[in-house]
């Protein structure tokens, strides 16, 4: 709110706006972007509009992601032409998720991105059915510096579960990954089929956004 108030003031008194890079319509674009902040379009819940028939008709890899803490949800499509992991998925709102074998390694275009999280220890533990290891997350601070945080993690098999993703039932094993350091802790959950495909997950991004829920639609 304070930023908005400052913004109103600054937009109103656009004295001395740098002309270094504004040859285009940067100022009007900036004003538009500012005004758009006050418009709060009703969020579209993909669960209300998506159907299995529509997913099958799309015939491209799709990923449903939700970030409950900021009431954000979207259907992401795999960027075409990627033949090596990790793979990056784009949503219509301009955000992207990058996953390595279903484990979130980065986000972009979110208000506070996960710059990178190492995925290999988790993937190896999923293959082994459990384990203890360190995981490291990299963030960008408000003043554009790296913040690198390491957690001690433990992956445990919890149960066999049948998950239903838009009418498709999949037999999975549910694993929980509990991570902590002296200051913070979180728990990720993965639903993995016998071929080690992560069909559904709850994965921690950061303390601003909380968890992302993912479902592999196709």
């Amino acid at each position: 709110m304070i930023r908005r108030l400052i913004g109103v003031g600054l937009i109103m008194i656009s004295v001395g706006c740098s002309s270094a890079k504004d040859r285009d319509t940067a100022l009007s674009e900036t004003v538009k972007a500012f005004v758009s902040q006050f418009k709060t379009p009703a969020p579209v819940d993909p669960r209300q509009v998506l159907t299995r028939a529509a997913i099958d008709a799309a015939n491209i890899p799709l990923l449903l992601t939700e970030i409950p803490k900021i009431q954000s949800a979207g259907t992401l499509a795999l960027l075409p032409g990627q033949r090596q992991q990790p793979d990056t998925w784009f949503g219509a709102d301009g955000a992207s998720f990058t996953l390595h074998k279903g484990v979130v390694v980065a986000t972009r275009g979110l208000p506070f991105d996960l710059m990178f999280a190492d995925s290999v220890p988790t993937i190896e533990a999923l293959e082994k059915g459990g384990g203890r290891y360190d995981r490291t997350y990299k963030y960008l601070t408000g003043d554009n510096r790296d913040q690198i945080v390491t957690y001690q993690c433990r992956l445990q098999f919890q149960s066999v579960e049948t998950v239903t993703i838009f009418e498709i039932r999949i037999e999975t094993k549910r694993f929980s990954e509990t991570c902590f350091n002296p200051d913070q802790s979180f728990t990720n959950i993965y639903w993995v089929d016998p071929a080690q495909v992560v069909h559904k997950s709850q994965q921690f991004l950061n303390f601003s956004l909380g968890y992302a829920l993912t479902e592999k639609l196709l």
Partner: peptide
């Protein structure tokens, strides 16, 4: 100098220069 991207939370090249 106040960067407008900080205010907006969105990309903007503009910086308010206030002497």
């Amino acid at each position: 100098d106040i960067p407008l991207d900080w205010i907006l939370g969105k990309s903007s090249p503009l910086v308010m220069q206030t002497p």
